[in-house]
């Protein structure tokens, strides 16, 4: 019930946003065009209805093209990249966290400091350096590790995915470290240690289960951050994804379609996760 309410409010929010350019240009003209704003939103909604009929003007062939079913291909490519990167980021962040937790206090602080400042690198720099590195490697050895832009039908995966995964990984790592260190101060860790369990066992079996839940609830912001990065990534690698499609067709209808293509999977992922974790948590705070 609560989830349904949240779902509806999120949809309303997205719809309200899609009409904002009208409101903004009205404000620039010096008047608040609220009526116009709501009329645009309802017009956009009406034009959305038979979803198959939405079409965009394609400059290359100078013809109106229906959006469906071509757009599904773009969406699936974008989502593949996004979720592969998210998976990789989560996996490596957790691995590194466990490894760092096994280190001593002093070394842990140093590792944290370095990664903390790495986090402030802009994604653009990372992508550009990755592309230059591939070219440099090609010039030196003649081996093309991965192509740096999509041309034609071949799709590239691992280079964009690793570029996209790097920064979220560092963010998640920081989040994990904070939670794990918080968890380390709990009584049950002390109890387990006094019972003679090894540090590795405690971290992997006891703390891990509790920390992951808390990390999951805080990771939403990281996913949001990844969406922005995905946009830049598609532009710079020329990936035929939904973001690039949106850039070429900046229309409210396409905007809504794009946002929904991310909103639905991410919302369901989080809802299922929330349901799953909350069900397990109920009654027993600590595992």
């Amino acid at each position: 019930m609560k989830l349904l309410l949240k779902f509806i409010f999120s949809i309303i929010g997205i719809l309200l946003v899609s009409g904002l350019p009208i409101l903004l240009s009205g404000l620039l003209g010096g008047e608040l065009q609220l009526a116009e704003y709501f009329r645009t939103i309802s017009a956009v909604l009406e034009s959305m209805w038979p979803v198959q009929d939405i079409s965009v003007f394609n400059y290359r062939i100078q013809k109106e093209m229906p959006v469906f079913p071509n757009i599904l291909e773009y969406i699936s490519y974008s989502l593949q990249i996004l979720f592969l990167a998210l998976g990789a980021a989560v996996f490596f962040a957790l691995t590194f966290t466990v490894l760092t937790m096994l280190l001593g206090e002093r070394a842990r602080d140093r590792v944290k400091m370095v990664l903390y400042f790495l986090e402030s690198l802009p994604d653009l720099l990372i992508i550009m350096l990755a592309q230059l590195a591939v070219i440099f490697f090609l010039e030196q050895t003649g081996i093309l590790i991965s192509s740096i832009a999509v041309t034609g039908a071949n799709r590239i995966y691992w280079l964009p995915v690793s570029c996209l995964a790097l920064l979220p990984m560092i963010q998640l790592y920081r989040l994990c470290m904070l939670t794990f260190q918080e968890e380390e101060r709990q009584m049950y860790v002390e109890l387990a240690r006094s019972l003679g369990f090894s540090k590795t066992f405690i971290i992997l079996v006891h703390m891990f289960r509790n920390a992951v839940i808390s990390v999951f609830f805080q990771s939403k912001k990281t996913v949001w951050f990844m969406l922005s990065n995905l946009f830049v990534l598609e532009l710079m690698f020329n990936l035929p994804g939904i973001m690039l499609f949106l850039r070429d067709n900046m229309m409210p209808q396409i905007f809504i379609l794009t946002i929904f293509s991310f909103f639905l999977p991410i919302f369901f992922l989080y809802s299922i996760g929330e349901w799953f974790f909350l069900r397990r948590l109920r009654g027993k705070e600590v595992l």
């Binding site: 912001k221 922005s228 946002i259 991310f262």
Partner: peptide, 9 residues
């Protein structure tokens, strides 16, 4: 709902 809209877009 803003969390589903990439900031740059």
């Amino acid at each position: 709902s803003l969390h589903y809209i990439p900031l740059t877009v």
